[in-house]
Design a protein around this nucleic acid. Sequence first.
DNA 1: ATGGGAAATCTGTATGACAACTTGGGAAAA
DNA 2: TTTTCCCAAGTTGTCATACAGATTTCCCAT
Lengths: 230, 230
Amino acid sequence: MSQRSREIIDEIEGEILAGKISPGVRLPSEEKLCERFGASRTVIREAIQQMRGKGLLRTTKGSGTYISDPSLDSLATVMEAYASLVVEAGFNELIDFRILIETECARMAATNAGESVLKELRAVLDRMEKVKGVRAKFSKADIAFHLAIAKGSGNRIYAGVLGAMERRIIEYAQTNRGDIDWYSGVIEAHREIVDAIALGLPDKAAEAMRRHLVSSKRHFLDLESLGGET
Amino acid sequence: MSQRSREIIDEIEGEILAGKISPGVRLPSEEKLCERFGASRTVIREAIQQMRGKGLLRTTKGSGTYISDPSLDSLATVMEAYASLVVEAGFNELIDFRILIETECARMAATNAGESVLKELRAVLDRMEKVKGVRAKFSKADIAFHLAIAKGSGNRIYAGVLGAMERRIIEYAQTNRGDIDWYSGVIEAHREIVDAIALGLPDKAAEAMRRHLVSSKRHFLDLESLGGET
DNA sequence: ATGGGAAATCTGTATGACAACTTGGGAAAA
DNA sequence: TTTTCCCAAGTTGTCATACAGATTTCCCAT
């Protein structure tokens, strides 16, 4: 497997991560790169496309190709793609991963979250109360809740990684669960978490979050073993 | 920004993650896709290249394009690219992320690790003792140590995510640190972790790992504030 | 039935051309 | 001189065509 584009990718990536080219800087034009690597424009473009897929490059028609600044979006995009593949093979592992990160998010949020985050959390709680029973809307609010906490942690990596998985996990895990008791239970758990964060109690917030997620996981596994498929 | 390839990517990705196409299955040939989307082969290929970059597709010359099975490598590739970009902006956050995951890995390894993992860990310890003082080799062994523990956790996500960051973090963090006391300290900390895992003591293993990493982080930050740059 | 080889299929690369868009600078106007 | 406007050069996006190199399929001769 020769793959001319592979070599080119390796070389350019190498320069990027060696710091020779910094985020925001424009890459030489495709034509220039053709000269430099002695390859056709086709190959150069294939290399660029692949790096774009990774989120390493960003192109603007008419202007040029630029090194991405490390937007969390790019990480999220890729992790989402990955999560969608792994979802069947190792859903358990993915959930455990999520529990680990979110528990830590809650803990950190209790010390770092400002008033604006708390306000957002309370707004989401109200919304969940309002849409109780409507699964699609409830899920959406649920996701918003967890992302808000991740944001409140102050660590952008957590928020990025989590945002990548959240939607898919919740969609997947909440299939076939519609009784009103369950909705109320979720809201109650969320409220407990918010209270702990508001009071600035890291351990309590972490513990509440962990309990909430572990119970979700159990619910999901029960449903699955009963054959709860779409 | 129209971006014909964008639409195609969205559609194909949508089908993949909706489960309409499963890992291992072959995608229709480029020509067929041209017909289906009413686009030129160029556009189809650009879409494919980008998804290849994400690790979503795998192509074999002469045979076809296939949906990747969720190999951890693909995630690692992408996270590595990301880590290289974020490394300047939020190195602290990246390290905290690592500490969180590795602590959990150590905890889980204490209950899940089999004899083979323990054997590997001990072998790595010996090797570190042998190359004490040679920074490049020591770093390599250091990475191997942490990855072995991640593997011993039994959760492939941890191992994948960590493998993606490990090399870059350690390379970056160990710059300018060469005195013999430091090497000994690292080995001592590692030995403590291995012992706890061998005895099957989750909390102790986790605590030892956390102490080790937090101390590394502090060392690194000290060096940095003194102007320790490449 | 089987083995071998040719044909069909498929991805990788090269070339040339044009469209769509951005950018910078120069000409024209104030 | 300063400002405004427009266009020309530069750059990426898309198309069509052709052929090389690898793999797979299938048919024919043994």
